[in-house]
């Protein structure tokens, strides 16, 4: 009889992540950013010179750790399996717009909950956008939206993303001149890496997903995954209070363009529902063989590069007109993909 995981695994993963999110800020990660999946993928894009904003360029060991931690956990649990082929290029495009939406808002769903747990009220419009986005995605799921079936691939396919993560780790340690590493704004590398490995492995075991949580509640009133968000938010809040990082009303590195915040995370909620998981879940899945999620990871990397090259990313000073145009384009693209990939 196969063994099933009780929900405390999801709760534990969310809780541990929440604690580490706050601790990493104390240790040097940017305030109010903590461990943001998309922001850190953006930093990797910068380090690899896919954009040239030096301030946001670093090979984030947390991301490397998530991928490698999920890879090891998947191997140990015998769940590492190379699969793919369910509309990979559509997933790439959707994920690029997910990254752009998150960077307009300034945060993936994890950072949004982290911002709320730090007392930032501007994140509330993001939460609303995320819920509405997931709800739109669910409407299309209910009307038959599907990206097709994956099939098993040769093992080498499954190893591409873990080897890429290993390559990033080597670059981070060797510091060759062709990568740019901002010396500021990060916790000690070894601590970030170990935390990334732990959260990555827990994420693989628990299947924690920040958009899946909301989707499952809308779709079937299932609060299983939501326990992860609950654990994350409560322990991140407690930790912030303990470390003196809870500043009600403050929004360091956030902006007050509420419409942009709403639309940014609407794209994230909608897109993540279409591809079956939030940026964190995609990164974890990419770590243990899912090449479709690997395409999502690469889509976010390229989207993050575009976000800065085309001046789409939000800044504390505000949001550009380019960003609003990009989000409208994103909504149109999602509408086309959502309505042309339905099976009855």
């Amino acid at each position: 009889m196969p063994k099933f995981k009780p929900a405390w695994m999801v709760l534990l993963t969310g809780g541990v992540f929440g604690i580490f999110f706050a601790v990493l800020v104390k240790l040097g990660n940017p305030p109010n950013m903590g461990t943001c999946l998309v922001c850190f993928i953006r930093d990797i894009a910068g380090a690899l010179r896919l954009h040239h904003i030096d301030k946001v360029s670093f090979l984030r060991p947390e991301i490397i750790g998530f991928i490698l931690g999920a890879c090891v956990a998947g191997l140990v649990a015998k769940e590492f399996k190379a699969v793919g082929g369910a509309s990979p290029i559509l997933r790439f495009v959707i994920s690029a717009f997910v990254a752009i939406g998150a960077l307009v808002f300034l945060g993936c769903p994890i950072r949004m909950f982290g911002r709320l747990a730090g007392g930032d009220p501007t994140a509330l419009m993001g939460l609303l956008g995320l819920i509405v986005g997931a709800w739109i995605g669910v409407l299309f799921l209910k009307s038959g939206f599907m990206l097709g079936r994956t099939r098993e691939l040769s093992k080498a396919n499954g190893w591409v993303i873990p080897v890429f993560a290993l390559f990033l780790l080597i670059l981070l340690l060797a510091k060759p001149s062709f990568v740019f590493l901002n010396p500021n704004g990060h916790a000690p590398i070894i601590i970030s890496l170990v935390i990334g490995l732990v959260v990555g492995a827990l994420g693989q075991r628990s299947r924690l997903c920040f958009v899946g949580s909301i989707r499952d509640i809308i779709l079937m009133k299932d609060f299983h995954l939501f326990q992860g968000i609950f654990g994350f938010f409560v322990l991140c809040l407690v930790m912030n209070l303990f470390l003196g990082q809870f500043n009600p009303g403050a929004h360091p590195m956030g902006h007050t363009n509420h419409l942009a915040s709403f639309l940014g995370l609407l794209l994230v909620g909608w897109g993540s529902t279409l591809i079956g998981g939030c940026p964190f879940r995609q990164t974890i899945l990419a770590g243990y063989g899912n090449t479709d999620s690997g395409m999502s990871f690469l889509g976010m990397l390229v989207g993050a590069g575009f976000a800065h090259n085309f001046m789409l990313a939000g800044k504390p000073s505000g949001v550009s007109i380019n960003a609003i145009i990009a989000m409208i384009v994103g909504i149109v693209v999602f509408l086309i993909i959502s309505s042309t990939n339905r099976v009855r």
């Binding site: 699969v83 599907m146 079936r149 994956t150 099939r151 998981g277």
Partner: peptide
Amino acid sequence: GLSCPQPVLLTK
């Protein structure tokens, strides 16, 4: 071969 949440959706 179906990814989240399709298996649950079809069963539902």
